[in-house]
Design a protein around this nucleic acid. Structure first.
Length: 978
RNA sequence: GCCCGGGUGGCGGAAUUGGUAGACGCAGCAGACUCAAAAUCUGCCGUUCGCAAGGAUGUGCUGGUUCGAUUCCAGUCCCGGGCACCA
């Protein structure tokens, strides 16, 4: 009987489906375990080999936990709102709901092919009205809540209204600022619009104004992704910044709690670091500098030194710095090109240059601005005054200062900050040294440990301790204050798009109000998917929608994914987003698996939503994910062919990589014009007529470019010429210039796996050829789950061979069942128990690649021992269940075992089979002294209980001393480190 | 540019985190079985010197700490991911 994986997998998948084998019940009596994958966006390209990597890992872990007796929730769903479906609709007119439905069906059948243990009755789809009903409902909770700074949590906004009605909002100290502070009487006298304005400033979901990438030609807003070098990716039209009304989530209020929460969860240090860097908490000071102009300079200087700044807001420049101690080293100020003061402070002489510079910056994306190596900037002609010594400081504009962070202005200290230093050097600004010998005149030194010099009243004080002194001084003089700052900004929560959740919000007389109908507010059908007028979304084209004064924006992709883990717990509930009983039982996600690309987006948003739901007492915990494992990205291994671009060519013409390299001598390759080359390509008759080139010899300046070739038409690096010609019509007559062996060699490069790069490998093909069990184990065998790697199918044979070999531990092609009831010997027991120990630890620590190796080693050893004993191979079979569910179920039932092998229980490791022998070994201590000792050895290391030296110096191994390792080194000598 | 990862044989990777580098698998070579092929099995397989025993060398690069470094530290190069409207 041989291993017929096709029949086995088909049978078992059918059985699982027919019996609802993976149906999960909310059986509150059992201990629970919740394993979650980041759900996929159902793209039109279908599932590729990168998707299942994390899913297989989580499936293995789920089955493992189930064998260990847990009630395991391991659901799957689809993040089905998104831009690609909308773009597809724009191009083809097909409704996104239709294409999404089709794509989901493809994804599901592909997933089922691999044999995952999902309970599909718990599936969620973010674009399903029954789901987004609750996304809208949670949005309204955010809209109707504010962050209370006293209790540091979200509270209903009605409480705030009550407070305003009774107490108003007056400052504890200082004078009230008009528009910000008011008494109860004033509040009660406010118009509805004025009240709405005030409340909007506190809502957790609020409306404001923000800049977007606007493409006039396409009439639409573009993602940063869709903007390349300042023009739209599609069509190459110019893109500019445009200010639009936008919804935001006030995530900044949760900055501290998002930081603190990281201490309570099991994420990798790298992930925690990324999140806390994103939040970017820093403490420092905001300092106001008086601005002088040439005319008023003298006056302001006196005022500044006297400690009373001009009171008008206009004549002050406020900066944020984390290093107030360096205040005497400020040689210039830099403000962002968007800074509101620019118009006012720019001198007549500089105006032209400033205008030119700002026009230049407008054409650049924020990303480009940050990545710029070139130093750019312009002087405004204005000066600020150092509040402590009255020095005039020139104010510059530069793109390296971003408007969104701090005050959009910095005080530049070139001797302490590298960017400031480069800027000063580039523009010839003199540098003040405030750190004495610590500054070498060549490069900035950001130390905090130097004693200050040239720093007035701070001279001689170590920088670290000067920080507080300066802050105190500026606070006393009323020209600034201590300030904690965050890099994180509030999350933009609206999109001018169609395929997303509609906001259940109406606008009456300019006031945003909760929509009064019953949720869900269903996304209406539209005629066409093109944008509405003035940068509004497609919903603005629907008269009935506009007539109801409904919000025309939709929610972004991350809305639905911010809470989906809760819906899986109670997916059919139409009374609540999730019953409290269900969310209390399933509780936090015990294990969450997904890529690092979501490190700062989805993960922070869903953590915030969870905190809000917790604050509002809707769930019982404020961190969604207990443990997070990041799977690496499976990258595509793209293949390219050199294509000749010369005009006059009548056919497509490609050249083998090795031929090109020889001709271009490597350093002068692709895409460049070469003065003169000679190509000989086999000399077919009539080739000249076909190609339009000069006979079989191609001479003269050839321009080449590289073109993607479908990776499925390439074996290793060698192109299958027939497949290539059949791949596309325009290539059917292509001329391929091969090497001497008649082979056409491709280039390879690692890229993201994507349809447009022709490097997608479909798991279906591999499953059809080798079976799901082989595919699952091979994906795991590729390497650590956490590591990114390019896909390579080479090597899958080895895993397939393993499964065939494993099968032969139970069945022989001729003899049939070979499992016997003989008692195992010690050697066989040792193989089994070492394997149990190894597989359990590998599974626990997510080292599935070494886990697969462990099975291979065990199988090899048992084959060598000719061991087919039931007491050995049966437990081994159970161990393999999580990795290869189909073959194990089949063998289990062929062995006559009742029920599913999933309920067999995990084998128990016994340590009595691991110890080998006790032997006498020569010993060196710290590489010097030598003696002999008795050591029992287990895997190369051993504990030493007694040690007697021959020279008599050390008589006994000293108990209670810090234990050191005994290591076996070459030549069987033992090195003892004490 | 900033933040986070990663560089080990021809290839994917292992080394349970400071202790015999290269487990396991792929590819390759040699052999067994076979009329033959497939399947299966056995042996070899970093580089280099050597008939061999054995020696030297070797974990991107340059240094450092240590009896001992793939592992720790500093610097540097290359590759991947993220950088706020892709998901």
């Amino acid at each position: 009987m041989e291993y017929d994986f096709r029949r086995i997998e088909k049978d078992w998948q059918k059985k699982w489906k027919d019996n609802d084998a993976y149906k999960v019940t909310n059986d509150f009596s059992k201990p629970k375990y919740y394993v979650l994958d980041m759900f996929p966006y159902p793209s039109g390209a279908g599932l590729h080999v990168g998707h299942p990597l994390g899913y297989i890992a989580s499936d293995i872990y789920s089955r493992y936990k189930r064998l260990k007796g847990f009630n395991v929730l391991h659901p799957m769903g689809f993040d089905s709102f998104g831009l690609p479906a909308e773009q597809y609709a724009l191009d083809t007119g097909q409704h996104p709901a239709e294409t999404t439905k089709k794509n989901i069906a493809t994804f599901k059948s592909q997933l089922d092919n691999i044999g995952f243990c999902y309970d599909w009755s718990r599936e969620v789809q973010t674009s399903d009205p029954n789901y987004y009903k609750w996304t809208q409902w949670i949005f309204l909770q955010l809209f109707n809540s504010y962050f209370c700074h006293t209790e540091k949590k979200a509270l209903p906004i009605s409480l705030l209204v009550k407070k305003y009605e009774i107490k108003g909002a007056m400052p504890k100290t200082g004078d009230p600022v008009p528009g910000k502070h008011f008494t109860a009487e004033q509040w009660n006298a406010y118009s509805e619009a004025e009240k709405a304005d005030v409340l909007m400033r506190r809502r957790l979901a609020y409306c404001g104004y923000g800049e977007v990438n606007w493409c006039e030609a396409l009439g639409t807003v573009l993602a940063n992704d869709e903007v390349v070098n300042g023009v739209s990716e599609r069509g190459g039209y110019p893109v500019v910044k445009k200010t639009l009304r936008q919804w935001y989530l006030r995530i900044t209020e949760y900055a501290d709690r998002l930081l603190d929460g990281l201490n309570t969860v099991d994420f990798s240090d790298a992930m925690k670091e990324m999140q806390s860097n994103w939040i970017g908490k820093s403490s420092g000071a905001e300092i106001d500098f008086a601005i002088s102009s040439r005319e008023s300079s003298a006056v302001n200087r006196e005022l500044s030194i006297a400690g009373s700044l001009p009171t008008t807001h206009d004549s002050r420049l406020s900066v944020y710095t984390t290093r107030p101690d360096t205040i005497f080293g400020v040689d210039f100020m830099v403000i962002a090109p968007e800074h509101e003061l620019i118009a006012q402070i720019t001198s007549a002489a500089q105006k032209q240059y400033v205008d030119e510079y700002i026009a230049y910056v407008k054409s650049r994306s924020e990303r480009e601005r940050m990545a710029e190596k070139k130093i750019t900037g312009v002087f405004t002609g204005a000066y600020a005054l150092n509040p402590f010594d009255g020095r005039e400081i020139p104010i510059w504009i530069s793109e390296y200062v971003l408007a969104g962070y701090g005050t959009g202005a910095i005080m530049a200290v070139p001797c302490g900050d590298e960017r400031d230093h480069k800027f000063a050097n580039h523009f010839g600004i003199p540098i003040t040294n405030i750190i004495g010998d610590e500054y070498n005149g060549e490069e900035a030194n950001p130390t905090k440990d130097a004693a200050l010099d040239n720093s007035g009243f701070l001279n001689g004080i170590v920088m670290k301790s000067a920080i507080d002194i300066v802050i105190k001084a500026i606070e006393e003089r009323g020209i600034g204050k201590r300030k904690v700052n965050y890099k994180m900004r509030d999350a933009a929560f609206s999109r001018q798009r169609y395929w997303g959740e509609p906001f259940p919000i109406t606008w009456k007389n300019g006031i945003a109000k909760e929509w009064e109908g019953e949720l869900p507010l269903v996304l209406p059908d539209v005629e066409k998917y093109s944008p509405g007028p003035d940068g509004q979304g497609p919903l603005a084209n629907i008269p009935e929608w506009v007539a109801q004064e409904l919000e025309t924006n939709t929610m972004p992709g991350y809305a639905g994914s911010s809470w989906y883990f809760l819906r899986y717990m109670d997916p059919q509930n139409d009374k609540e987003f999730c019953s409290r009983a269900a969310s209390d039982y399933w509780n936090q996600v015990d294990l969450y698996i997904g890529g690092t690309e979501h490190a700062v987006g989805h993960l922070l948003y869903s953590r915030m939503w969870t905190k809000v739901l917790y604050d509002l007492n809707l769930i019982g915990y404020d961190e969604p994910y207990k443990r997070l494992v990041n799977q690496g990205m499976i990258q595509g291994s793209s293949r390219f062919a050199y294509k000749i671009l010369n005009k006059g060519l009548k056919v497509e013409m490609f050249v083998s990589k090795d031929v090109v390299e020889r001709l271009f001598q490597k350093d002068d390759n692709e895409g460049r014009r070469v003065r003169s080359i000679v190509l000989k390509y086999g000399g077919q008759e009539g080739a000249d007529a076909q190609t339009g080139l000069n006979g079989v010899w191609v001479t003269y300046g050839i321009i080449m470019t590289k073109r993607h070739v479908d990776v499925n038409t390439v074996d290793g690096l060698e192109l299958n010429i027939e497949d290539f010609k059949n791949w596309r019509d325009e290539y059917s007559n292509a001329v391929l210039i091969t090497n001497e062996q008649g082979k056409f060699i491709c280039l390879d490069e690692v890229e993201k796996m994507s349809k447009s790069k022709y490097n997608v490998v479909n798991p279906d093909d591999l499953v059809a050829k080798y079976g799901a069990d082989t595919f699952r184990m091979y994906e795991m065998f590729l390497g650590p789950v956490e590591m990114s790697k390019p896909w390579d199918t080479k090597g899958i044979e080895g895993v397939h061979r393993f499964l065939k070999k494993f099968w032969r531990l139970f069945f022989d092609e001729i003899k049939g069942l070979v499992v016997n009831d003989d008692e195992p010997n010690a050697a066989e027991q040792k193989v089994l128990h070492n394997t149990i120990k190894r597989i359990e630890s590998d599974t626990e620590r997510f080292s599935f690649n070494t886990g697969v190796s462990g099975f291979m080693i065990a199988t090899n050893e048992l084959t060598d021992l000719k061991c087919h004993k039931r007491k050995i191979v049966e437990p081994l079979l159970v161990l393999l269940v999580p990795y290869a569910p189909h073959i194990t179920e089949e063998l289990w039932s062929l062995l006559g075992k009742p029920g599913s092998i999933l309920d067999a229980g995990y084998p128990v490791y016994e340590s009595n089979y691991t110890i080998e022998t006790t032997k006498e070994y020569p010993v060196s201590i710290n590489g010097k002294l030598r003696t002999t000792m008795n050591i029992s050895l287990d895997a190369g290391q051993a504990n030493v209980e007694s040690l007697v030296l021959q020279n008599g110096i050390v008589q006994k191994w000293m108990e209670g001393k810090p234990h050191k390792k005994i290591i076996f080194v070459k030549g069987k000598m033992v090195n003892v480190v004490v």
